[in-house]
Amino acid sequence: MTDRIVLRGLSKRYGEVVALENIDLDVASGEVVVLIGPSGSGKSTLLRCVNALEVPDEGEVLLDGKRVDARQGDIDRLRAEVGMVFQHFHLFPHLTALQNVMLAPRLVKKIAATDHGLALLDRVGVADKRDTYPDMLSGGQKQRVAIARALAMEPIAMLFDEPTSALDPEMVGEVLAVMRQLAEEGMTMLVASHEMGFAREVAHRVAFLDEGRIVEEGTPDRIFDDPQRNRTKAFLSKIL
């Protein structure tokens, strides 16, 4: 298997606060890696570095072997190669669900295929909402449209930044179901989440982050049933 996403010695500070400290992580093609850890442990910053929404102070990010650099000319194209799903959806409120999905392909790839957009909405189960504006969608529907929007650029990998944390409990399941389906189809996924059930069931690998470091990583069974580090044990005992 080839490595889709490679992080080498990634470090990021905000003034005195260390957000990431010397992170090494490889995500292979088709692999699902779930990042767990307390709030502020650096999960979000890590994902944002992959997409060049943050510029790391040290280290590098490689996508299919190509270096991600926010100052480089082809950064827009590289960004389009990984889909990003945000905690708070960030759908474009002035566009319908279908227009949200089709905006980037239309502008960046110069293709305006309604069929393609509809197929994506159908894939996440909201095809009947094609002409609905985001403020008339439920949280779960919004997040599913956001996933379809990210998929529209046919990314080589998907990043999920706590995709269910802003949802009402009864809507978490529908979003996780879409993510599970994506994983089964072989999508490469890097997911920051507090959904331990999802991590255990879907992840190939789980990494526990604390204070900007990867404290421990391994298969879900190993991390959840047999954590080696005290900090991992302490975190899991609080959350499970």
């Binding site: 194209r77 474009f92 960046v108």
Partner: peptide
Amino acid sequence: GQFEAARSLGL
């Protein structure tokens, strides 16, 4: 978030 969502799509 609107800027970020747009930029992350490659705009």
